[in-house]
Design a protein around this nucleic acid. Sequence first.
DNA 1: CCTCCTCATGGAACCGTTTGCTTTACTCTG
DNA 2: CAGAGTAAAGCAAACGGTTCCATGAGGAGG
Lengths: 345, 345
Amino acid sequence: MTVTIKDVAKKAGVSPSTVSRVLSGHPRISLETSRKVKEIMEDMGYTPNMMAKSLVSKTTNSICIILPKPAEELFSNLFFMELIRGIVTQSSRSGYDVLISSGANEKEELESVSRLLKGRRVDGVILLYSRKDDAVIDFLESGGYPFVLVGRSDRYEDILSVDNDNIMASFDATNHLISMGHERIGFVSGPPNLIVSRDRLEGYRKAMANSGLEMRAEWIVEGEFLQDSGYRAMSFFMNLPNRPTALVAVDDMVSFGVLRGLNELNYKVPEDLAIVSFNNIPLSELSSPPISSIDIGIYHLGYTASQVLIQSIQKPDNHDGYTNRFVIPHRLIVRESSMHSPVKK
Amino acid sequence: MTVTIKDVAKKAGVSPSTVSRVLSGHPRISLETSRKVKEIMEDMGYTPNMMAKSLVSKTTNSICIILPKPAEELFSNLFFMELIRGIVTQSSRSGYDVLISSGANEKEELESVSRLLKGRRVDGVILLYSRKDDAVIDFLESGGYPFVLVGRSDRYEDILSVDNDNIMASFDATNHLISMGHERIGFVSGPPNLIVSRDRLEGYRKAMANSGLEMRAEWIVEGEFLQDSGYRAMSFFMNLPNRPTALVAVDDMVSFGVLRGLNELNYKVPEDLAIVSFNNIPLSELSSPPISSIDIGIYHLGYTASQVLIQSIQKPDNHDGYTNRFVIPHRLIVRESSMHSPVKK
DNA sequence: CCTCCTCATGGAACCGTTTGCTTTACTCTG
DNA sequence: CAGAGTAAAGCAAACGGTTCCATGAGGAGG
């Protein structure tokens, strides 16, 4: 039924080894044989069995994307879709297949990664998060498996990662508001165990300090990368006695929540509260008003991650020890949500 | 370096076959042997090589999601993210890995599917679209490969598919507007080669006919599942002499485009134009105003597709020939965008 | 004409599992 | 106590490729 290399060999009157060599473009095969074998392969509809191939080559030509634990929520974020799109596109160009996996909890996640890598189902993985302590990263490092982080890790200096300069990005975002004349600026952060939350918070702090602006503890609230966080943060901020006139939100989804809340309370954006957030997902420009956002090149992030990983799989020794961290440039997209200067008191 | 079944066997003083049987829970293995082998496997950190396993079992325990050709655009639609989430969740519960693939064009797509299936890299595929004529479906059918369609196919009666009753859904959506008092209702459709476009259009027609309302050709425009289509459709409708007071849009993304356009022209929703669309993506309730939408249970669609596919892989003969088409229920979520009755002329 | 190369190909072992067929060692039965 | 039956484990042949090594046929050089 399924046509194998042996069937082709028999029909062509050559040995299986010859067919294999034709397949892999071995130099010492006569043009004539090559032509004939290729024709017969075509005729018989031969497709190489990738399992057999993988078994002997110890290589699968596929990689795996590991989604973060609380995939349930984060999945619904367009951020991941863009990222995956970048990864899939580049991988497919390099001839790699992409698996996608996510565990219900950290333990399951680790088991899954271990099964995939030790079981030789994939050649490497892309981690779509960077927690501060992580058993999965420990496993990958100690096992010497190829992997790349989307996001950065401060714990390990020498692992491959693709990231933005989030400190600088947040610095830029905050400075934009400052340059518009805002002085009381709030910040809606993400989970504190995510490095991206920390970095963006730091950038905000730097910008505020840099301009000599007051930073009140109550102007900084923690949340998730979700709309609800924005909604809650908004209602907290708006009830403050000397409330912020602008805020930086750690993710566009948060801004959507803020927007919805402000809308319900009949506040105007940007007149009552100016907003800038991060990621510039396709919907940022669709909300009303459109949201100013730092474009972090999500697609590019994924594309590069795939490139870096596959390169590392193919030439593990080519690692010069310097270029571990790939920084994707960001840029501020100013839209209506921040186009207003506060009324000076 | 990597520990194989033979290493375990040697250390345990048994044959490889015995170890294999312990692994698969073979009945005729003494409890004592089983215990000992298991312990040693644990000690040595044995993980089965899935390639070897697949080679002999002719089974990979993985499935592949095929994204539609113009993945570039559609990818950015939250619809697919939800769908994938449902698929990944259920597959992982069933112990299946999920590959994700998309070709730049139909030819590439076919090659990719063929390579994956004939090359025995995956056991079956989920097609995330249903075009009217499709080489991929032909290939899958003639090769007898397990696959399920998300969406329906009218060409093939007997293939597995998971879908909504889009005709009824559209009927409901349109009727909702009619019941609000609208009589001039527009429809923004999707690409005509997609069955979902056709079905939703048909539902709209039925509802209009059912209520004896006039249906003008100019009230129906074709587009994509994209914001731009909505934007264009909006400007077309609003310039019509006797313009619609409401419209049904084939996808929420289209509504976003309409919303943006109306906002720019200072029209009010729902006062100047009421809107209902399909899919109820997480953002539908976040726009201003929130959009009425038919919730089609996207996650559920994906979850079921995975279930049906895996079932069909595991018991290909269990196919009763009746339950080929799985219909996921829909329900109308009424939000602000349609909560207004038109002024009677 | 003999030796030595080079080139094109064949043969066989191996990658890590599974599984049908044996073998071994008991336990039962009459 | 011999023969049958059975439970537990081993042997070896696949699965479909790849690749090292061997082989034979020319052609070149001396």
